[in-house]
Nucleic acid binder design. Structure first.
Lengths: 218, 218, 218, 218
DNA sequence: AATGAATGAGCCTTCATTCAT
DNA sequence: GATGAATGAAGGCTCATTCAT
């Protein structure tokens, strides 16, 4: 029994499980969905009991928030940066946007997919900020598309809003099928998606003739 | 034969609430998601108690099945028909496919959206058939795209699979934003989405030049 | 299998356990206190599981509310009636007040004791009404005492507020020791408490001399 | 003997947080009640974590014990002393009793109120001693009252037991409303309560006549 | 067919308590 | 002595499901 010497041993930092918990939660939320994921299972992945998770976070909802926060912010921040970048053509910026989003899907995996898969079903007031961010995100895409139309780079077959919705759908739906395959392959996929968007299925042929023979509104 | 007593019970219409229940379930599943929807709320919409629902269906899961069955089958059936239709060009058939899907979103509303919103999270064995249907659906789109490439109608910037996934994402993501606005407006929207896919943002300009200046892989 | 005839059999009233549940809750709350009482134990008294209690009440707190409501209201209502009754002298009304309170302790047993034992620790907003009622109750006693002072019936050694607090304490503390012994004995007890209040320990002797020899503030 | 280095570690006051913890516990127990008070909140008041409390005490229950011990013992000890004091009249000793109890409420604030507020809900075996002390306390009051009746000082309208219970209730209920206002005001309040007990509401008038017109048992 | 009531399993959350550092 | 972290045991509440009437 040592005598108390009047000073405290600097608390040796014990293994902090927060990163593990965050990762485990991301995976469970991704695999089972927020509602079906249980704290017990998340804890089990880390090797702790469900109650112990509350040493790190105040509620299951807060855990979802924590999982989703980084990718959500980064997604929006990078998009805003691209939108405001007047140096590059709109087309180039749009390409970068697609590349960026895929990159974030990879970098924040699976958290970013948890985000896009749960946006729209996150009705709790705690998520107001994220719903708003999602709105801004869509607005930014729309505004980028509209800019391309204004500058004459694009000749739109639909309103910028509709184009934005289609593009975002194309990208967000990736959470159903995309699996990272390495930086190179992922970047190529991004560019393919961009090419699809940019030139469509007829990228190599003549647009005018074809579209003449398929009048949208006869 | 009973004696005529001077009055008769009017033929009470057999109270068959099945259609109401199905509709109520569809709406709850759509608004809250399957996991958050409760049989109690579904019953409340119809004016019965949750227990009474078991007079019509064996389980909550079965109810989801019932909600989703019609639109799922129809979606696949019509797609198969289009794919096999050798009379028309691939592009036309693809246009019809988009029109058809939007039409089904409207006609089976909100059931069709329940379907696309829950595909991928329906892991129970009971849904094996639907997961398989979803696979066939995606295969059909892919095969249609591939046919267009074979016939030279399309010049693809990505594999048929990727194109199919992008197209399906564009369409299925609609459950986040689409609200029916009448047959005409809905058909126009479908055609806009198709045009987007067909010609892309540069529909009015020259594809070749532009794509030359944005080499996908520098 | 009987054919559906188009009308409903009037639902045979099944044993409604609400009264039993209310009684069981009252007893558990009384014996263990609200915080230590468990729904499981309450259910066990009735022979049902804890979850089943939610067929009758929305939360544990609501159950406490339900237990406490009747005695709380009655207590206040009867007191208000007495206070407003100008027919009788204040002393008589005060005696009736004491009798009444004891009667309610007996009649609403143990619910009334749950009430007085938990007033003051019921901080939830749901109990705002009851806290207010308690305030009115105390005000009514005070006003009755003050009336006696005004009419000259009483010659107070303390403010009406203090007298009211002392009286109420005397009565409410009964939840620590009172057990009903039948109408006659209970009424006698009430009258003894009243006599204590009215005449004090020296009821049979001379007040003036004694109190002169014990000056409150020398 | 170490060499003088030119400075010395000031004798760090052994951090003994026990008094702070005791005070913090008293306040939390008072404000929230034992069951609702958490060790975490108690620790937070002192600036330590809940786990650290176990360096001072073996359990939450023991902490309550510690909080309550001093006032409980003192209350009983002083009462015993008064009861045995044959020098003074019973009335004087009763007055001292009331003064003493109020004084202890003030001096051991809020611990003494924690004691009276939790007596009767402390069923754990650990509290047997205190329950016994409470019994002795009540017995002492009763015996004092009875002595007054024997000596002829008092003319009781109820059994000594009932009188004791009423008096104790009056005093113990103070935990619902009493706030210290300084020695003078507090002592005056004590004397008012005593006067109430001694002479009742009719201290200034004639007891006999009044009580004749309100026969307790008609 | 519908009801009222009950079941049972599961989940989130709380909290006293323990313990290596 | 204090910390950070974990435990384990409840307890409240939800809800799909069952069943007698």
């Amino acid at each position: 029994m040592t005598r108390w010497t009047g000073h405290y041993d600097p608390p040796v930092p014990r293994p902090n499980r927060w990163p593990e918990i965050l990762a485990a939660a991301g995976e469970e939320f991704r695999e089972r969905g927020y509602d079906n994921a249980t704290l017990e299972d998340i804890g089990a992945r880390v090797g702790i009991l469900k109650g112990s998770i509350y040493n790190y976070v105040g509620s299951k909802e807060e855990l979802l928030l924590a999982v989703v926060e980084q990718p959500a912010r980064q997604l929006l921040a990078e998009l805003e940066r691209l939108r405001a970048d007047a140096e590059q053509s709109v087309a180039v910026r749009l390409r970068e946007f697609v590349r960026m989003q895929v990159r974030i899907f990879v970098e924040y995996h699976p958290a970013a997919f948890v985000y896009v898969a749960h946006i729209g079903r996150l009705t709790s007031p705690r998520f107001a900020e994220f719903r708003e961010m999602d709105g801004q995100y869509l607005d930014a895409v729309e505004s980028l598309v509209a800019e391309g139309a204004r500058t004459g780079e694009f000749s739109l077959a639909a309103s910028p809003r509709t184009v934005a919705l289609a593009l975002v759908g194309m990208l967000d739906w990736m959470h159903h099928w995309f699996v990272p395959r390495g930086a190179a392959a992922d970047a190529e996929l991004a560019d393919q998606l961009f090419a699809l968007l940019l030139g469509g299925l007829l990228a190599g042929g003549g647009i005018k003739e074809i579209s003449r023979s398929f009048p949208l509104r006869p």
